[in-house]
Amino acid sequence: MAGSQQEVGPPADPADPVETVEAVVRRQLGAALGGRRGMVEAAVPTLLFTLTWLTQRQLTLALMVSVGAALVLLAVRLVQRSTPQFVLNALFGIAIGWVFVRIAASRGGDADAQALAYFLPGILYNAGYSVIFALTCLVGWPVVGFMVGSVTGDPTAWHEDKQVVRLCTQLTWLLALPCVLRVAVQAPIYLAGTSGGIDADAAVAALGVLKIALGWPLQLAALGTMVWLLGRNHTPLTPAQESG
Rank of each mutant, 00 (worst) to 15 (best):
M1L: 10
A2W: 09
A2D: 15
A2H: 14
G3R: 14
S4V: 02
Q6D: 13
G9C: 05
G9M: 14
A15H: 13
E19L: 07
T20Q: 06
V21K: 05
V21S: 05
V25S: 03
G30T: 11
A31Y: 09
L33K: 05
G34V: 07
G34E: 04
R36C: 01
V40L: 12
V40E: 00
E41L: 08
A42V: 04
A43D: 15
P45L: 11
L48G: 03
T50D: 08
W53R: 01
L54D: 10
L54N: 12
Q56L: 11
T60W: 10
T60H: 11
M64K: 04
S66E: 08
V67H: 10
G68S: 03
G68E: 01
L73F: 12
L73N: 08
L74H: 02
L78E: 07
L78D: 03
L78M: 10
V79L: 10
V79F: 15
T83D: 15
Q85R: 13
V87L: 08
L88C: 07
N89Y: 10
L91Y: 05
F92A: 15
G93H: 07
G93Y: 07
I94V: 07
A95S: 15
I96G: 03
G97L: 05
V99D: 04
F100R: 04
F100E: 02
V101A: 15
I103C: 02
S106Y: 07
R107K: 13
G108F: 09
D110P: 11
D112T: 07
D112P: 00
A113Y: 09
A113S: 15
Q114V: 06
A115K: 02
A115L: 03
A115T: 03
A115R: 01
L116A: 01
A117T: 11
Y118A: 14
Y118D: 01
Y118K: 01
P121V: 01
G122R: 00
G122Y: 00
G122C: 01
I123S: 00
Y125Q: 04
Y125D: 03
N126I: 02
I132D: 01
I132V: 13
I132R: 09
I132A: 13
V139G: 03
V139N: 06
G140R: 07
V143T: 14
G145P: 14
F146M: 08
M147V: 02
G149H: 06
S150L: 03
D154Q: 11
D154C: 02
E160Y: 05
K162V: 12
R166F: 08
L167A: 11
L167P: 04
Q170K: 10
L174E: 12
L174R: 10
L174C: 05
L175T: 07
L177K: 08
L177N: 02
V180R: 00
L181P: 08
R182A: 06
Q186W: 04
A187E: 10
Y190W: 15
T194L: 06
G196P: 02
A202C: 01
A202H: 06
A203T: 04
V204M: 00
A205V: 05
G208V: 00
G208I: 00
L210P: 08
L210F: 14
I212D: 11
A213R: 03
L214D: 11
G215V: 11
W216F: 10
W216M: 01
Q219A: 10
Q219P: 00
A222T: 03
A222R: 03
L223R: 13
G224P: 07
T225Y: 04
M226C: 13
G231V: 08
G231Q: 12
N233E: 09
L237Q: 04
T238R: 15
T238Q: 09
P239E: 08
G244A: 11
G244K: 05
G244P: 01
